[in-house]
Design a protein around this nucleic acid. Structure first.
Lengths: 189, 189
DNA sequence: AACGGTGTTCAGAAAATTCTGAACACTCTT
DNA sequence: AAGAGTGTTCAGAATTTTCTGAACACCGTT
């Protein structure tokens, strides 16, 4: 259960971090902040954090205990993380509880995240844009010209945004300096 | 003051949209949704929306009136939009109020947005990562190996993220099909 | 078919974010 | 230097998001 780095700081516990050793606390803290950068709930960052910090997969109850959050939160958080592909459930033969592994590949992580957050909005936007042009009829020609230009810019936007995603993923997929086709996770196939 | 497309739909007003014509309402609606995709306040999207929808720059009071939001909100929203470079103040000679123009270039828009939201977190993260490695000493060699690998992956992350931004901006800067060096805004130089 | 273990759901509580409105600050004009 | 016009600030209100905890559903085991 890793009590190695237990009684380290007798400090007043830094906010909403984990209980374990310094390593776990720091990692959890790191991911809490990262989560907020993407405006995801802190608990989601924290959950990914404990999984990342643990040398082996953790169960829902492990997480509840280490973060002292409710089972409800942990369950919802794990569900979200699974949906975006940030964690992977593992099923061991003689064990009834599911344990979770953190996804280490940026590509997969970002793919999932963007798919979840941005893509649906882009799609919705695209539809709405089409219905916009006719409304310009209302304007006198001079103003219409200005607004039509903006509408065109907006369409350019959309096109670029759609193309951007695969582009970014391509970039992230390629290792910094060439290596075997292992992607960048620490785990096996 | 563009009353051209005024009394069009005598409908029960679709939620928190603008008051003007159908064009304005639709555009505002569009940007409200877009703002939410980036988890920015609705009001911020709405403000950018009215500016985008208007053939000429609007003042703070124009915005307050058209969106029926408080001056406080409008002021704060405009400040944010200015900070991320999404709107530009224009000062006319014989007019004391500042009027605002929407920024039409994706490059500038995204640059500002990412600068505002992601970059500070990346920086903070980088510092924290360095302090993380020593904490692994606490672990038995076997576990340490696993966790060290993850830490390396995390560093790879950071590097890639840092390089990604200019990369993305480069992509957005280039026109879809070759054209003159005009960037993609509808305005003059 | 009762039971223990595991995980999900959901109504209400708690916390965080956003908005309002009125007071204030600044700057021209008279 | 009083006043009008423009914009900012900020304490509290309103709204939205997140979290909790207990009830419930499911699934093997006995």
């Amino acid at each position: 259960m890793n009590r190695a780095a237990e009684n380290r700081t007798p400090l007043p516990v830094p906010a909403a971090a984990a209980r374990g050793g310094a390593w776990e606390r720091e990692v959890v803290d790191f991911y809490i902040h990262l989560a907020q950068a993407f405006s995801l709930p802190k608990s989601v960052g924290a959950i990914f954090g404990v999984l990342f910090a643990s040398p082996r997969p953790l169960s829902l109850d492990d997480i509840v205990e280490r973060l002292s959050i409710s089972k409800g939160s942990a369950s919802a958080g794990l569900k979200l993380l699974q949906r975006v592909g940030a964690v992977q459930p593992t099923y061991e033969p003689g064990d009834r509880r599911t344990r979770y592994l953190p996804e280490m590949s940026i590509r997969r992580l970002l793919t999932g995240l963007l798919q979840e957050t941005l893509t649906p909005h882009l799609r919705r936007g695209a539809e709405q844009l089409e219905s916009l042009a006719p409304l310009l009829e209302e304007f006198p020609p001079e103003e219409r010209k200005v607004l039509a230009a903006r509408l065109r810019a907006l369409n350019t936007w959309q096109s670029k945004a759609k193309r951007l995603l695969p582009f970014v993923l391509g970039f992230l997929g390629r290792p910094l300096r060439r290596a075997k086709a292992v992607d960048d996770d620490g785990r096996g196939p």
